[in-house]
Amino acid sequence: MSNNNPLQPIPCEILNVKKESTHEWTFRVASDADVDHGQFMQLSIPKVGEVPISVSGQGDGWLDFTIRSVGKVTNVIFEKEAGDTLFLRGPYGHGWPVDEFKGKHLVVITGGTGLAPVRSMVNLCADNPKTVKDLTLISGFKNEDGIVFQNELDKWKEHDHFSTTYALDNDEKEGWSTGLVTTFVKDIPFDTFGDDYAVVVVGPPIMMKFTGLELLKNGVPEEKIWMSFERKMSCAIGKCGHCRIDETYVCLDGPVFPYTKARYLVD
């Protein structure tokens, strides 16, 4: 096996599997890979296929992947359990510019499983309170079944530095709000942040588009907004072309983009 093959996957052991919701499970996999918050890896099952999955958490010798069972490969991954093997390659792409966020007020707005690519960064802020001044988290989900990371959401709610708004699009839930995440943007106390803040948005394309416009409407300058894109990927190394938008390759130049760029990426 040549060691200069960037497509070569490495077999890794599954350490445990945690069910976040019916269709979203978190797989903890043994790996020493050095991953930036917001980067992704290619997970594969030989004879079934490969999928790009963002790293949702990391620790000493392990990585977490929160996976939604929506296709052939993820369905087969859901048949795996602790002790089984997953094949990994990566990490790939550009993650969150955490250094840029350090010491600032951080606003995180997520829709659905868009929480996964920010989860490790939010945990970093929770575990090391000095990372950011404070963190405003707005997380929206379609309905109760769609909620992911319930335990962590509960934990973050109690955190001193955190101010959280959790919402379901249409349904009611105790202690939760009802409405699209865009409706809560106007409640963010941007005037108290001065110039010293950054906003992170992740979710489905429509949600990101309207959240971006809503932020601009509330006086947030383009340069303070960051987004993470999810696109079809096959190679993750800039060869297959599936993820390309104009001259931009999401796998190489993203998935995290400054809004100054993201705003003008039209598929």
Partner: peptide
């Protein structure tokens, strides 16, 4: 191109990871 894993019809235990030409003109590319 698209990466495609296949297993051989006569023995599902063995298979390949293949590279197959793809086209942005064909439905499903993105």
């Amino acid at each position: 191109f698209t990466t495609r894993d296949i297993c051989y019809g006569d023995n599902p235990e063995v298979g390949e990871r293949r590279r197959v030409t793809a086209s942005c003109q064909v439905a499903g590319f993105d």
